[in-house]
């Protein structure tokens, strides 16, 4: 899932303060699940904003509406009518959702209320961990299901650098496991060490331009 965290309150307030009527659009997808931008968070943020505006004697008004997902056009139809009443939109979706919202209503200024932080997993309630950098050339099959691009601070492909501590931690932090220490451990347990004894040649970085993907079965449908 995509994980987001709310921007600092003052930054959000600064972005929208010159607008009279703002609609804060929540997202029922990933940012709901990571507890950053769902219906509940829309309510909490709006309450905070209203109080601040009231205290400052500003006349801005912020309402909320949550749609099921901001990354899929099917879920925008209800918004179409509602947004007409507003002169600015705040989005609590990930960066993809914010852009999709802005595309849908190009005449409306759109502002992000979250920072999109990573693609990750739930470690526990409210605890998330980055696991994928969407590099478009997955090597997990060779590395025991542990991503060196994401989890090695130097994204190394041929084993650990010289900075692995005695406890198997990364040189950047005593709390961060060394990815290659973990890869070595797992492959050893699986008797697959030969995977990382071979030279891994320089890879191609395919994620340096915007990605577009049409699945094979749909190529015909979208052929120009």
């Amino acid at each position: 899932m995509i994980v987001g965290e709310r921007k600092p309150f003052d930054e959000i307030k600064e972005m929208i303060k010159s607008f009279k009527k703002v609609l804060n659009v929540g997202c029922g997808g990933c940012t709901s699940i990571c507890m950053a931008g769902g219906q509940r968070e829309v309510g909490l943020l709006n309450e905070e904003l209203q109080n601040a505006f009231k205290q400052e004697g500003a006349s801005s008004r912020v309402d909320g509406f949550t749609i099921e997902r901001q990354c899929n056009a099917d879920f925008f139809s209800e918004l179409d009518e509602i947004v007409k009443e507003y002169d600015g939109l705040l989005s609590m979706a990930c960066g993809a959702g914010v852009q999709f919202l802005a595309d849908r209503y190009p005449q409306k200024p759109v502002f992000p209320a979250l920072n999109t932080v990573f693609v990750g997993v739930d470690r526990d309630i409210g605890w998330f961990e980055e696991n994928c950098r969407t590099c478009r050339e997955c090597v997990l099959g060779e590395t025991g299901g542990i991503c060196p691009v994401t989890r090695c601070a130097k994204s190394l492909f041929n084993g650990p650098c010289g900075g692995t501590s005695r406890e198997g931690k990364c040189e950047v932090s005593k709390d961060t496991p060394c990815a290659w220490f973990e890869i070595h451990k797992r492959l050893k347990e699986q008797n697959r060490l030969e995977n990382i004894l071979r030279l891994k040649p320089a890879r191609e970085w395919r994620n340096q331009t915007q990605g577009t993907l049409v699945q094979e079965a749909y190529k015909k449908r979208y052929a120009k």
């Binding site: 190394l156 041929n158 084993g159």
Partner: peptide
């Protein structure tokens, strides 16, 4: 490979790490 940028005097610069030290040797 190089010491991680976090240790230096521009700790939040973008680390490149396009290739690793073994790929550089090669």
């Amino acid at each position: 490979s190089g010491d991680h940028q976090q240790f230096g005097n521009h700790p939040l610069t973008k680390g490149v790490f396009d290739i690793d030290s073994i790929q550089l040797i090669n």
